[in-house]
């Protein structure tokens, strides 16, 4: 082994230890018997027990799941339409604007997205009476807007790589455009759709900043509960909650990764 690759191996080890050691510390100390987060006092599941009895966290988890389900599904529908329009129709009035609006949320700082959407909701309520206050619906609208960008990027990539002669063949054989879309196009882009949905779902589940702006008093999400509790200090219950979230997200991401690779 030459010196270069020795250096690269060391970089790989350093990089992955750096990425995973903090996460591992959260998981390990979630099983700690002691209330002190940093002193190991034996294995215990008590914080998981306490977690399941914590009603505030249970409520917030339900809000977060509802928002994420609505947001991922809405983003999937709208993002796919936007991607299809952008890939298949190269020329139409306002195409540049649509392309800009589907990629800009990817690089827009969350704090600006959150603030601007809240200001919109307040102005809309003043002008039209809708939305009445803020809650699950407004958080979901905000997350759909963010999710559209991620879904559109993934679906666009899949649609651009796709062999259109398959669709043309079906059209030549007399299938209608709707039938072609449902029986040829949809199955071929299905892995990208599933991956896009999962990514929009995890993004929504994880978002703190945009949700803090667009949530109402009765719609606290899980990240908002974690954040306010973390501001008061590290707690073993949050470690347990974090471990559960890590497991859920790992399963989802591994699933999305598999879907994107299997053709």
């Amino acid at each position: 082994m030459n010196r270069l690759s020795l250096f690269l191996v060391a970089s790989l080890i350093f990089g992955f230890v750096f990425l995973y050691a903090p996460i591992a510390s959260v998981v390990v100390y979630s099983f700690n018997a002691s209330r002190l987060v940093t002193v190991w006092a034996g294995f215990s599941l008590q914080w998981y027990g306490a977690l399941f009895e914590n009603e505030a966290i249970g409520r917030a988890a339900r809000v977060s799941l509802q928002v994420a389900l609505i947001a991922a599904t809405g983003a999937l529908g709208l993002g796919t339409l936007a991607a299809y329009g952008l890939v298949r129709y190269r020329r139409f009035a306002g195409r540049t604007l649509l392309a800009a609006m589907t990629t800009a949320p990817l690089v827009m700082p969350e704090i600006i997205s959150g603030l601007s959407l809240l200001l919109l909701f307040v102005a809309l309520e003043q002008a039209t009476g809708w939305p009445q206050g803020r809650g699950i619906a407004t958080i979901a609208i905000a997350h759909i807007t963010l999710g559209i960008a991620f879904v559109a990027v993934i679906v666009e990539a899949r649609l651009s790589a796709f062999d259109r002669s398959l669709e043309e063949a079906a059209l030549d054989l007399g299938a209608g455009p709707v039938r072609v879309f449902l029986t040829i196009t949809l199955p071929l882009i299905a892995p990208a759709l599933a991956a896009g949905w999962l990514l929009a779902f995890t993004l929504s589940l994880d978002d703190l900043v945009i949700a803090s702006f667009t949530a109402g008093p009765a719609s606290t999400t899980l990240p908002m509960v974690i954040f306010s509790s973390v501001r008061l200090g590290v707690s073993p219950q949050i470690n347990a909650l974090a471990t559960l979230i890590l497991i859920v997200i790992t399963v989802l991401v591994a699933g999305a990764n598999r879907l994107l690779r299997v053709r």
């Binding site: 903090p22 510390s25 994880d206 470690n239």
Partner: peptide, 27 residues
Amino acid sequence: MAIILPFWTSFLIRVYAWIGLLKENGI
């Protein structure tokens, strides 16, 4: 995959992890 995973794992939790590591009576 091991690089992508933390990227999708909760941002908030990954920042939180450092508090437990770095604070005065931390790990």
